[in-house]
């Protein structure tokens, strides 16, 4: 009557099917080469004194002349939603977790940390293209905050790796290291 949700990959091949056996064998042999994109929630931002309020007050009409140094944090509302999203993701419900992060993004649409959260969820749900795009979004929004940009580059690197674009992934990882060495 209405669209059924797509069957998850694991159910498309019935157990015991020859193809799945071959695939599993190949995966075991080539497992070290392929890197599965798994959900890892982003590491929390470093504690700091300066924080960006959840709703920035109207800025004066004069625009900044150079990227001011800043440090992004999650407001209280976003933090609560991110915590909820992590719990939902850890119990396997990426759809719910995404919806929760989207709620936070409506409160703080320009916070790169939230875009990184959403990108990580996309990666966990095997949507590396969106993970990459959201990483780039976070990168642009995070101008002036090396820690946020480094986290964005790490997300981009992981996404590119999942897409098999290893050279670019390595370059992205180098950017991350350069900005905020682990």
């Amino acid at each position: 009557m209405f669209a059924m949700p797509a069957q998850p990959l694991s159910q498309r091949l019935p157990p015991g099917h020859i193809t799945s056996a071959i695939l599993m064998a190949t995966a075991m042999l080539g497992g070290c080469v392929l890197r599965t994109a798994e959900y890892r929630p982003p590491s929390p931002p470093p504690p700091g004194s300066a924080s960006i309020p959840a709703q920035p007050p109207p800025a004066p009409a004069e625009l900044p002349s150079s990227p001011a140094a800043r440090q992004f944090h999650l407001g209280a509302a976003s933090r609560a939603l991110v915590t909820q999203a992590h719990a939902q993701a850890n119990s396997g419900d990426f759809g719910q977790a995404s919806a929760t992060i989207e709620r936070a993004l409506r409160i703080e649409p320009e916070n790169p940390l939230l875009w990184i959260e959403l990108g990580r969820l996309r990666l966990g749900a095997a949507d590396a293209d969106q993970a990459d795009a959201m990483g780039r979004k976070a990168l642009a929004l995070g101008t002036g905050d090396p820690a946020a940009q480094a986290a964005a580059w790490r997300l981009i690197a992981d996404a590119l790796q999942a897409l098999g674009r290893n050279a670019q992934a390595a370059e992205a990882a180098r950017h991350a290291e350069g900005l905020a060495p682990r």
Partner: peptide, 14 residues
């Protein structure tokens, strides 16, 4: 509504 205040990318100058 809030002011437009996108950060200026590092490759640019004013």
């Amino acid at each position: 509504t809030s002011s437009w205040n996108a950060p200026m990318p590092e490759s640019l100058a004013e």
